[in-house]
């Protein structure tokens, strides 16, 4: 039987306190807990059904195959416990590729999203060679807006998503400004 090329190759590495790795089935329960909770409201949730969480988890992997970049499962460097999903997101109906972050409840308050978003931004600029990137934040998601501001991003208009609703666009400082 002829074997086709692999599904996808997701770059994995460690940096700072975190491990950036491919999502896997072992991440399903924590990811489902996030998707089913109020915490996912900023990303169009809550998604109460397990089937929805599965589709989103599989979608994280498929995103890499379709775009060549995507989001990592960000895990504790010591224990490999998943802490959240951070990376570059660009599905359809999206204004531009964005740095997106979703933090699981137990990872909160430790600057994990701040640390990982900076790594993702550096990946976009240095590895992908991009000159600009945004983050999309729902207007009521004040904590993510605060993080975008802390990352040096500035408001740059909005995008009306047909399903998620209005998204505020935050444009990050370019590679030369960093």
């Amino acid at each position: 039987m002829t074997v086709q090329t692999p599904v996808t190759a997701i770059p994995e590495f460690e940096a700072g306190r975190l491990r950036y790795r491919a999502p896997q089935m072992d991440d399903f329960e924590p990811y489902h807990a996030f998707c089913a909770s109020e915490r996912s409201r900023g990303v169009g949730g809550p998604y109460p059904h397990r089937a929805q969480a599965f589709e989103r988890l599989a979608g994280l992997i498929g995103h890499w195959a379709l775009r060549g970049y995507g989001r990592w499962m960000v895990a504790d460097r010591e224990t490999d416990a998943p802490l959240g999903v951070v990376g570059i997101l660009y599905p359809e109906d999206w204004p531009e590729p964005e740095i997106a972050w979703s933090l699981f409840a137990e990872a909160e308050g430790r600057g994990i999203a701040y640390e990982a978003a900076q790594v993702a931004r550096r990946y976009a600029y240095e590895t992908l060679g991009w000159s600009t990137i945004i983050s999309c934040v729902k207007p009521e998601n004040t904590r993510s807006a605060a993080l975008a501001r802390r990352l040096g991003a500035r408001p740059d208009g909005h995008h009306d998503h047909p399903m998620i609703g209005r998204l505020h666009i935050w444009r990050h400082p370019g590679p030369e400004a960093l």
Binding site: P23, M25, A58, G59, I61, P91, H161
Partner: peptide, 20 residues
């Protein structure tokens, strides 16, 4: 499906191979 849902589903079709 909307284009957004369609894209997410197609990505999931690929990821399904990896997971299952």
């Amino acid at each position: 499906l909307t284009p957004y849902e369609t894209w997410m589903l197609f990505a999931a079709e690929i990821g399904h191979w990896e997971i299952r």
